[in-house]
């Protein structure tokens, strides 16, 4: 093991290349024989009422209070006396002081090497400040990130989930390990265009908002409701079969039909909707296929008088054809 010998000022100056505050304590002289530039900067950043030169044997002078100087030298001398013959020891201690009523904490790590103690200083106060700034910035980034996520997944008018959120929800549901039972429905407000055309877009927006608020108040907490188009909405009902889901939506429909809205011309109008419903697994396993089949059922509902809920089935259009033929036969028999 080579011993540490520092003989010239040039060798001392090598310590100035380090960003860490470093000091050298001579065990022979019982005083600090060198402090580097970073050490000086650390102490010079405080305005102290009384000041002593911490190290006067080289060109660098760090201005510290008498209490600080005493505390530091006492610690170092004590460290040596405790176990003078034991080389390569490490001693960590802190010294607190005040400047402008602010408390500063410096943590010193002293390493003994032969006739020297090398002292490295850490500004704990500065570390704490950095921690606060980092935490504040992280909290801000997290908050903004959440806000951006909400904005990207919410319909601005109705404050309801949007199509992007629907895709995310479906992805989340279908990647869960638990057995899946859920339905997907498309709800479409009946004669919505008439509201817009007769009473203006503001009233149309009002209808959409009332419709959404009412439905969100009625559905179960595990259901998911999203606006996917102008007056078209999607409802995912978890833990629900097609017949159960259909019943729920029929109840919602009855409740919606009781709402009376006042138009700008002070006329009272009612709203209703038509819906088609498809079940995950039986009617498709992808969002596209389920939406497609729910849409077919919705089309059937629209073609058969509106204001009703139709569960998807593969024979849906055969049934419809039967109805058309029956109507046609009835007309012909008149």
């Amino acid at each position: 093991m080579t011993s540490l010998t520092i003989e010239t000022q040039t060798e001392f100056d090598l310590f100035n290349l380090l960003q860490l505050p470093i000091a050298l304590f001579s065990l022979d002289k019982k005083e600090l024989i060198f402090i580097n530039d970073s050490f000086v900067e650390l102490y010079d950043s405080h305005e102290l009422s009384s000041a002593n030169d911490l190290c006067s044997s080289n060109n660098h002078k760090a201005v510290v209070s008498a209490e600080q100087e005493l505390a530091l030298l006492d610690e170092l001398a004590g460290f040596y006396q405790d176990n003078a013959s034991n080389n390569h020891r490490v001693h960590v201690f802190t010294i607190e002081f005040e400047s402008k009523r602010r408390k500063y904490i410096y943590e010193y790590t002293a390493y003994q090497k032969n006739a020297f103690i090398i002292v490295q200083v850490q500004d704990v106060t500065k570390l704490k400040k950095s921690q606060f700034l980092l935490n504040s910035s992280n909290a801000m980034l997290e908050k903004y990130s959440n806000e951006m996520f909400t904005l990207a997944h919410t319909d601005l008018l109705t404050k309801t989930a949007n199509r992007r959120a629907l895709f995310a929800k479906f992805e989340q549901l279908t990647t869960e390990s638990a057995p899946l039972e859920f339905t997907i429905s498309i709800l479409d407000i009946d004669y919505f265009k008439k509201f817009n055309d007769s009473y203006g877009h503001e009233f149309g927006d009002y209808v959409l908002t009332v419709f959404c608020d009412h439905i969100k108040a009625l559905i179960s907490p595990i259901s998911f409701f999203a606006r996917i188009g102008g007056e078209e909405f999607c409802l995912i009902q978890e833990q629900s079969s097609k017949s159960g889901g259909t019943n729920n939506i029929q109840n919602i429909l009855q409740s919606i039909k009781d709402i009376q809205l006042e138009t700008p011309t002070e006329k009272q109008v009612n709203i209703s909707f038509s819906a088609g419903i498809a079940e995950y697994g039986k009617d498709g396993t992808t969002l596209d296929s389920l939406l497609n089949n729910a849409d077919k059922a919705l089309y059937y509902a629209k073609q058969n008088g509106r204001s009703c809920v139709i569960p998807f089935s593969t024979d849906l259009f055969e049934k419809r054809a039967d109805i058309i033929y029956a109507k046609s036969a009835a007309r012909n028999s008149r």
């Binding site: 009523r101 602010r102 408390k103 106060t125 704490k128 400040k129």
Partner: peptide, 8 residues
């Protein structure tokens, strides 16, 4: 007002 307070 700031005596004996944690300024940090």
């Amino acid at each position: 007002h700031f005596e004996n307070t944690n300024i940090e």
